[in-house]
Simulated assay, not measured.
Amino acid sequence: MSRTVDAYVGLGSNLDGPREQIERALEALERLPLTGRVQASRLYVSAPVGPVDQPDFVNAVARLETRLSPLALLDQLQALEQRHRRVRRRRWGPRTLDLDLLLYGDRVIDTPRLRVPHPELAARAFVVVPLAELAPELQLPDGRRLAALREALPLDDGLQVLPNNPRDE
């Protein structure tokens, strides 16, 4: 693939220094092959989805300019998770690093390995809020506007900006 595509990646961690896990992952995203210019949202704290017997998550969203194909990008993201010692013990369980390919340009992808836009994107404040920070005018491939999704979220969804956020400086 020769043209550059904007891809959005959701980041989450709730184990082994979650803030540091996210910061290191953002640095690693900048070094992905055929990928440049990484922008990142502020860091947020959110309650876990699914099992509540785990620590809160630190979340962010990154925008990448990449020439990697969607599956090649997914491979890179999964390799990065493995370098962060990601272990998949249970669905929605605790993890050192979770990287989700949220959007890949205006493409709709539905394969056994990858679904883009991410199927849960619109329902999760810890994705919509930081994504809106990076791209407030964004329109999803199905025509929904990100601003409308943001407005539809409950005001008290438990999402909080992480104090002393390096992205606020």
Rank of each mutant, 00 (worst) to 15 (best):
Met1Lys: 08
Thr4Ile: 11
Val5His: 06
Val5Arg: 03
Asp6Ala: 15
Ala7Ile: 01
Ser13Cys: 08
Arg19Pro: 09
Glu20Val: 10
Gln21Asn: 09
Glu23Val: 11
Ala25His: 01
Leu26Glu: 04
Leu29Gly: 03
Glu30Tyr: 03
Leu32Cys: 10
Thr35Met: 08
Ser46Trp: 02
Ala47Pro: 04
Val52Glu: 14
Asp53Tyr: 02
Gln54Lys: 11
Phe57Arg: 02
Val58Ile: 15
Ala60Asn: 08
Val61Ala: 08
Val61Pro: 00
Ala62Tyr: 01
Arg63Lys: 14
Leu64Asn: 01
Leu64Trp: 01
Thr66Arg: 05
Leu68Lys: 01
Leu68Ala: 03
Pro70Ser: 11
Leu73Val: 06
Gln76Tyr: 01
Gln78Gly: 03
Ala79Gln: 14
His84Trp: 05
His84Arg: 05
Arg86His: 10
Arg88Met: 07
Trp92Tyr: 15
Pro94Met: 05
Arg95Leu: 04
Arg95Cys: 02
Arg95Ser: 05
Asp98Ile: 04
Asp98Phe: 00
Leu99Met: 10
Leu101Pro: 03
Tyr104Pro: 02
Gly105Ala: 12
Gly105Ile: 12
Asp106Arg: 15
Asp106Val: 08
Arg107Asp: 14
Ile109Asn: 02
Pro112Ile: 06
Leu114Ile: 09
Leu114Gln: 06
Val116Arg: 01
His118Lys: 11
His118Val: 07
His118Thr: 05
Pro119Trp: 08
Glu120Lys: 10
Leu121Ile: 05
Leu121Met: 07
Ala122Ile: 06
Arg124Met: 06
Phe126Glu: 03
Phe126Gly: 00
Leu131Gly: 02
Gly143Ala: 12
Gly143Glu: 13
Gly143Cys: 11
Arg144Met: 11
Leu149Met: 08
Glu151Asp: 15
Ala152Asn: 10
Leu153Glu: 06
Leu155Thr: 13
Leu155His: 13
Leu159Trp: 05
Asn164Ser: 12
Arg167Thr: 04
